[in-house]
Design a protein around this nucleic acid. Structure first.
Lengths: 120, 120
DNA sequence: TTACTACTTATAGTATACTCTAAGTCAAGT
DNA sequence: ACTTGACTTAGAGTATACTATAAGTAGTAA
């Protein structure tokens, strides 16, 4: 009866079962359908959303922002513009973060290459 | 008598005074010399280190890693190889993080450009 | 001298994102 | 029937990085 268990999802995306339940509780994914015994059965759509959430979390988007985005989505089509604005804001913040990290990367690389000349 | 106050450093680097004292307590900077009244007076070398720490923090290097690096530095020249290894490790981790963020950036950009086609 | 402001310390509190524990349920194998 | 193992929940605990509070000191201006 159960097709995709939390165990399988956990292994596929390298997220702990606790994290998957936590994301669900926080409204980032799901609610996941459960069988008669209350056991979760993930759909393909659930998996696609998990992949998206994982990707965004790895880029530093907060739980709060992702929850807000999903909340807007659930509110209906009329929130589309607001959702796009939210995504644009996150995209711009991400761009700046990437810039800072690339700057740090260059500094680290220089420091490693010229270590003897460094102060610390 | 005092040349560079915590107030000035705070404004120059856009770090709160609390954060500057916190970094010092955690061994990331200083110890900063204090005048007879116990008030901090930052040197140019202190500032350079603060700038480095700020840059590395903005890239996500942890307090723990930066403390460890400074601890090794204080231990002496013989820790040089270990320090370089530490920096190389952080550089590689940073590279991977930049990759993940660029991936998320592209996904976000695509989602924004093709919003109507998206699922959420 | 008094008032004000900026500094000091130690310690407590907050935000974020998990991560773990306890107690219990359920289905399958022996 | 019993044991095993994976699932469930609610809620507590942890790690990281600040951030705020309280109580006190020191220097300056009126």
């Amino acid at each position: 009866m159960i097709k995709i268990t939390i165990q399988e999802v956990s292994e596929k995306y390298n997220l702990t079962k606790d994290t998957l339940r936590y994301y669900e509780k926080e409204g980032l994914i799901g609610p996941i359908t459960k069988n008669a015994s209350g056991v979760r059965d993930y759909s393909e759509a659930d998996l696609a959303r998990i992949e998206f959430v994982k990707c965004m979390r790895s880029a530093g988007l907060s739980i709060g922002v992702l929850r807000e985005y999903m909340r807007l989505y659930d509110e209906g089509d009329y929130t589309k513009d607001e959702r796009i604005k939210l995504l644009e804001g996150e995209r711009d913040a991400l761009k700046e973060k990437i810039r800072l990290m690339q700057d740090a990367y260059k500094k680290l690389e220089f420091k490693i290459q010229n270590y003897q000349k460094g102060i610390w």
